[in-house]
Amino acid sequence: MIDVKKVAHLARLAISDDEEKTYKAQMSTIFKHFEEIASVDTKNVEPLITPTDMKLVFREDKREVVLTVEEAMKNAPEKSGNLFKVPPVVG
């Protein structure tokens, strides 16, 4: 059985008791379906992450102004000068 509360905590998601119940049922149905992949023999198969064969290309490491401080702060829910402000928290 999936411990939905624990998973929600790992994902930093506050969920209600009702949501927990619904997700528990849905997630176990979904994972039952996902488990079909266990039937495939994948011995010595390298996992595939990027689906096209491409060389990783790095850009030049040069300094440039992409965003000014003012632009970077524009969407802040709360700020104090050039700092992002959050409510006082402990822990």
């Binding site: 905590h9 930093r12 506050a14 409510p87 928290v89 822990g91």
Partner: peptide
């Protein structure tokens, strides 16, 4: 107020 930093993130999300 949020009790701790996890609570802060979890409620926003």
């Amino acid at each position: 107020p949020a009790v701790d930093v996890d609570d802060f993130y979890s409620r926003n999300r």
